[in-house]
Computed example of a mutant assay.
Amino acid sequence: MTPNAEGNPPGGREPVTEFRPAGGADGPAGASPDHELPAEELPPDLNQAILEAAKQVASILKKHGHAFALAGSVAVYAHGGTGNLQHDADFCIRPEDADAVVATLEEAGLPVFTPPEDWLVKAKCLGQDIDLIFELASRPVTTELLERATELPVDSVHMPVLAPTDLMRALLAAFSEHHCDFGAVLPIARQLRERVDWQAIRGEYGDAPMPAAFLFLLERLEVIAPRGGER
């Protein structure tokens, strides 16, 4: 899951409606069970299971014309990163679209629920966790953010994928004294380093203590050039 640095909504945004699975835990009555597969069709490992869930959710959102972008470790994979995925599939959606997206997923038979965090809603697909994020690094997901996404294939399904610079922005913005796992972000920075606008990252976060420390680490490891240098 892509973390939110503060966990607080920006000023002025109305709280998102509390969503409940329609028709019980398995979704609305009569809906096709898009979140289930027969045992013999289940993917052989967790990484593939997460990919299959991401593909299925993306297909549903595309079919109904929702604006979204794939985020998190599956987005890194789509940009050429390793297939060592994390615990879920993340999608960015705009706050104003949250109700409609939830309704679409429930109609498709996916259970959707509200966690304690107020910057996302969660769903289940093929037994995997799906995070629908409408605040990324304490900022609302915007049309501009989604428009910067690139259409890429995730296995056999094309979908909009968050731009590498935006992925790195979200990861660095989430660093704090309570959440500062450089080890988890370092391999992502290595994998995406040629695709990230590091000058823009420095301009936005380079003076904040934790992001600045991480950027210094990247310089010392020769992942990126020192400030003002070339790589």
Rank of each mutant, 00 (worst) to 15 (best):
A123D: 05
V121I: 12
V102C: 06
G203Q: 03
G11R: 08
A100M: 13
L126E: 02
A173N: 03
L186W: 14
H158D: 09
A71L: 08
E222I: 01
P21H: 09
V141Q: 08
E14F: 13
I130D: 02
A67T: 08
R169T: 00
E41D: 03
F216T: 01
G81A: 09
E151K: 04
G12M: 07
A98M: 13
Q128G: 02
A25H: 14
D34W: 15
G27V: 04
P9N: 07
A184C: 07
R193I: 00
I93N: 02
Q86P: 00
G65P: 12
I224D: 00
T82V: 14
L110N: 10
P15N: 10
H87G: 15
L37I: 02
C125W: 15
R231H: 05
R231F: 10
T165S: 11
G183R: 04
Q128W: 10
L167E: 04
L51V: 13
R231G: 14
R195F: 04
L171K: 14
G11I: 07
G80Q: 07
I50A: 05
F19Q: 02
P160V: 04
H35Y: 03
Q48P: 09
G65Y: 11
E106Q: 14
A75W: 14
V223Y: 05
F19L: 12
D131H: 11
G203I: 01
E6F: 10
K63V: 01
R20P: 07
L221E: 10
V101N: 06
L136T: 01
V154K: 03
L126K: 08
G23E: 12
A174M: 03
M159F: 06
S138T: 06
P10A: 08
E117R: 09
F113Q: 03
D90Q: 13
L70D: 10
I133H: 05
P140V: 05
Q86S: 15
L215Y: 11
M159S: 05
E219G: 02
P44A: 13
V196E: 01
L186R: 08
P153A: 03
A108K: 10
L37Y: 12
L120K: 15
F134K: 00
T104N: 14
